[in-house]
Amino acid sequence: MNTLAQVAAHMPYDGWGGGPGWFIIFPILWFLLVVAIVVLIARSARRGFRQGPPWARQAGTDPVAILGERYARGEIDESEYRSRLAVLRSAADPGGGRS
């Protein structure tokens, strides 16, 4: 019984055992959490909230790029790719190359 009383007498802070270090570590952890949240919000604001997350954005809306992607995926064959590309290029240059 004497040993149990000695152990109980030497337990600091009613069994927490952390010592005064926790009073320093917890505010630092909260500070780091707040800084991380502020940094993430600032990065999102810089990139633009309306664009959405990077994984949800479309690669591009350029018709030639979309046509190239469809050809690369095998949705269209080479002859269809070339004919549609010619139509897109002629629509992009209505003057026919004249200055």
Rank of each mutant, 00 (worst) to 15 (best):
Gln51Tyr: 11
Val38Ala: 13
Trp55Arg: 01
Gly95Cys: 02
Thr3Trp: 01
Glu78Trp: 15
Gly60Ile: 06
Arg89Ser: 03
Arg46Cys: 02
Val64Glu: 04
Phe49Lys: 01
Gln58His: 03
Ala9Gly: 04
Met11Glu: 12
Val38Lys: 14
Tyr81Ser: 15
Gly21Trp: 06
Ile37Pro: 11
Pro12Asn: 10
Val64Lys: 07
Met11Ser: 03
His10Met: 09
Phe26Gln: 12
Leu29Val: 08
Gly60Gln: 05
Leu4Pro: 07
Val38Met: 11
Asp14Gln: 05
Gln58Glu: 05
Ala5Glu: 03
Gly15Trp: 03
Gly21Leu: 10
Val7Gln: 14
Ser83Leu: 10
Leu4Val: 11
Pro94Asp: 00
Pro12Ala: 13
Trp55Tyr: 06
Ala45Cys: 10
Asp62Leu: 02
Gln6Tyr: 06
Trp55Asp: 00
Gly68Asn: 13
Val64His: 04
Glu78Thr: 15
Asn2Lys: 06
Phe31His: 12
Ala45Arg: 13
Trp30Met: 15
Gln58Thr: 07
Trp30Asp: 04
Ile25Tyr: 09
Ile28Ala: 14
Ile24Arg: 02
Asp62Met: 02
Pro27Asn: 11
Ser83Trp: 03
Arg43Trp: 13
Pro94Tyr: 04
Ala92His: 02
Glu75Ile: 03
Asp77His: 00
Arg98Asp: 00
Ala8His: 07
Pro54Gln: 00
Ala5Tyr: 05
Trp30Phe: 15
Leu88Met: 06
Arg46Gly: 02
Arg82Met: 13
Arg73Cys: 03
Gly18Ala: 11
Gly74Asp: 12
Gly21Cys: 09
Trp30Ala: 15
Arg70Ile: 05
Gly21Thr: 07
Pro27Asp: 15
Ile25Cys: 05
Ala86Tyr: 00
Phe31Tyr: 10
Gly48Lys: 02
Phe49Tyr: 07
Leu85Thr: 09
Val7Glu: 15
Ala72Cys: 06
Gly15Cys: 09
Gly52Leu: 01
Arg98Val: 01
Gly15His: 06
Met11Ile: 15
Asp62Pro: 01
Phe23Pro: 08
Ala56Cys: 05
Trp16Gln: 11
Ala5Gln: 08
Arg82Val: 12
Ala59Phe: 00
Gly48Asp: 07
Gly68Leu: 10
Gly19Val: 08
Glu75Asp: 09
Arg70Thr: 07
Ser79Ile: 11
Ile24Gln: 05
Gly21Glu: 13
Gly60Ser: 14
Arg46Pro: 00
Ala86Lys: 11
Gln51Cys: 06
Leu85Lys: 12
Leu40Cys: 07
Pro63Asp: 05
Gly74Trp: 01
Gly48Phe: 04
Leu29Gln: 04
Gln6Met: 05
Ala5Leu: 08
Glu69Ile: 08
Arg43Pro: 02
Leu4Met: 09
Pro94Ser: 02
Ala92Val: 01
Gly68Pro: 03
Pro20Met: 12
Gly18Ser: 10
Val39Leu: 07
Asn2Gly: 06
Leu33Ile: 15
Ala72Gly: 10
Gln51Leu: 11
Pro63Thr: 04
Ala91Asp: 03
Arg50Asn: 07
Arg70Ala: 14
Leu4Ser: 12
Gln6Arg: 11
Gly48Gln: 06
Leu32Asp: 02
Ile24Leu: 11
Glu69Trp: 00
Ala59Asn: 01
Gly95Ser: 09
Met11Leu: 13
Ala59Gly: 03
Arg73Ser: 08
Gly18Tyr: 12
Ile25Ala: 07
Ser83Ala: 14
Trp55Ile: 00
Trp16Ile: 15
Ser99Arg: 07
Thr3Gln: 09
Ser79Arg: 15
Ile28Gly: 09
